[in-house]
Write a protein that binds this DNA or RNA. Structure first.
Length: 510
RNA sequence: UCCUCGGUAGCUCAACGGUAGAGCAUGCGGCUGUUAACCGCAGGGUUGUAGGUUCGAAUCCUACCCGGGGAGCCA
């Protein structure tokens, strides 16, 4: 059955939606799926998606044969189609073109595609992630993710970095042991990696500048919009780099990602409704402050005022929405039927937004009280990071943290032994930490002492100590969380939308 | 693990102690340029599960299951 259709078997004959603007005036064939259908007497408007984009195809009963007309009539959402027609310029359409159809063939008719054009709850969408990926929003997000991945490789390759892979199965626990996935390795325990960091250092000593790009796993029972169990991390590691060089590199890196996406993902950013000004402000130099300065800023009176201002803003939005709801209800009886439905739909929107505002209003006082009582020496929480980013429009770099909150392999600040030469980069608009890194300890005696202090198994780190025995040098590196970066660039609230198949607490399928 | 909100038609929601209802989706009919099209008609329900209170429970109570948001931890 399927074999009888006129599939475009020759690559050179295939037309795809992404390059239709170069084909205005010509006739060709598109293969894809029906995303949406609108009908009028003698006319069908078929919105076709082929993975590269979306285009409206106009089927006019007078201009197609009976078979094509029947196909258009019976085609339902996500039916697979072969459409032939002329590419016409039409400024009214997304992408600026539409297809005047001369023939429609159906590869498969579909019954009851679960994801309808109206809104869905997140649980339903996550259960149908395998189909949800076909929708517009995932289309835009995944294309931006791809663009970011390309930028990452280009950025490092142009600077002479070697891409090398760290193992996924390890014997070592880099972070705390509480978040490790343990597996059985022929009778011995092994762990899924949480970071390629230590092996990255090995490779930097062998190849000077390297970066790893791979998945890491954290068995944390965290349920927040910023956490995944399995996520992708990019970890450059550079020999002969100190903390300042490390920060400069990380800064150039983020500037490059933002500018590449801005210049090449217009349509995708638009579809997501991303505020482009915010991305344009990702420019060097990023504000830099020490941890100690950040703590002072966080506890300052100005932070309290910012929280107050935010609360007032939310209160006034809240009362505006309530007024709108009340006036809608008062006028409701006088409205025509179709208008009532619009009002009903708006009411749901208002209810959802009011719920969000009330949640934020409950959280804000807690944020301030946690900031106010923050003590030098502890690590920033999610809300603390958010408050800090409110001060700036570009990402900010916070460096020189108390050694106790940083990993055992961080080098100490020669000017203050209480500090580690670590740095984090916080993305603006409340997106928070996307990069963490620093200068690595290069002294054998110090590292051995650190391993002892952290109760880590010394034997397992012998190969790591060898790096300090045989030609140790100052070196640095950092880790970028890919999904958090995608979330920030796309302006997406929740990290689950930034990876094709998110692995979260209680979610392992599809 | 803790705090908090929720589970009603395939989907999104309403009904808040008294006859379970709308929109979308689906089917049929109408409309020759629609943009989440619009108009008319139709089918569609063991109200998450198990108990309890009550003349009467989707609604109140208890336990459990599942999910959302937040905290801790982190990229």
């Amino acid at each position: 059955m399927i074999g009888s259709k006129k599939l475009q078997r020759h690559i050179e004959m295939q037309m795809t939606i992404d390059n239709l603007t170069q084909q205005i005036g010509s006739t060709g064939t598109l293969q894809g799926w029906l995303q949406q259908k609108r009908a009028s007497k003698g006319l069908f408007f078929l919105v076709l998606r082929d993975g590269t984009g979306m285009v409206q195809c106009v089927v006019n009963q007078e201009k197609v044969d009976e078979t094509s007309w029947q196909c258009a009539t019976q085609a339902t959402q996500e039916s697979s189609l072969i459409i032939t027609g002329e590419v016409l310029k039409d400024e009214r359409q997304i992408g600026g073109v539409e297809i005047q159809v001369s023939s429609v063939e159906v590869i498969q008719y579909v019954d009851d595609y679960p994801i309808t054009p109206k809104s869905h709850g997140i649980d339903f969408l996550m259960d149908h992630r395998h189909l949800w990926l076909r929708s517009r929003r995932p289309w835009a997000v995944m294309r931006i993710r791809n663009r970011i991945i390309m930028s990452i490789h280009k950025f490092f390759q142009e600077r002479g970095f070697l891409q090398m892979d760290a193992p996924l199965l390890t014997k070592n626990a880099v972070e705390g042991t509480s978040t490790l996935f343990e597996i059985d390795y022929f009778g011995n325990p092994a762990y899924l990696t949480q970071s390629g960091q230590l092996h990255g250092e090995v490779m930097a000593m062998a190849f000077n500048k390297i970066y790893t790009f791979g998945p890491v796993f954290r068995a944390e029972k965290s349920k927040t919009r910023r956490h995944l169990i399995e996520f992708w991390m990019i970890e450059p590691e550079m020999a002969f780099y100190d903390l300042d060089m490390n920060m400069a590199l990380a800064e150039d890196f983020l500037v490059r990602i933002a500018s590449d996406v801005l210049s090449e993902c217009d349509e995708e950013l638009n579809l997501l409704g991303r505020n482009l000004d915010a991305l344009q402000k990702v420019q060097s130099p990023f504000p830099r402050m020490t941890y100690t300065e950040a703590v002072e800023l966080l506890k300052s009176d100005e932070t309290r005022l910012k929280v107050k201002a935010k609360e007032e803003e939310l209160h006034s939005e809240h009362s505006e929405l309530q007024q709108e709801r009340t006036s809608n209800q008062q006028n409701y009886g006088r409205l025509k039927e179709w208008k009532k439905r619009r009002v009903d739909a708006r009411e749901i929107e208002i209810n959802v937004r009011i719920g969000e505002i009330e949640e934020e209003l409950r959280n804000l006082p807690q944020w301030w009280s946690s900031a106010e009582s923050f003590e030098w020496g502890s690590d920033f929480g999610g809300s603390d990071e958010t408050l800090l980013t409110w001060y700036f429009e570009s990402p900010i770099i916070v460096h020189r943290y108390p050694e106790a909150v940083k990993a055992f392999y961080m080098k100490r600040d020669p000017e203050d032994d209480r500090l580690a030469l670590g740095m984090d980069i916080l993305a603006p608009e409340g997106f928070g930490e996307i990069i963490g890194g620093g200068q690595r300890a290069d002294d054998l005696t110090f590292l051995e002492e650190q391993v002892r202090r952290h109760n880590l198994p010394k034997d397992a780190f012998e190969w790591y100590f060898d790096l300090r025995r045989y030609g140790t040098v100052p070196h640095s590196g950092f880790g970028l969380g890919l999904e958090r970066t995608v979330a920030w660039i796309c302006g997406i609230e929740h990290i689950r939308e930034t990876i094709p198949f998110p692995r979260m607490l209680g979610r392992l399928s599809p």
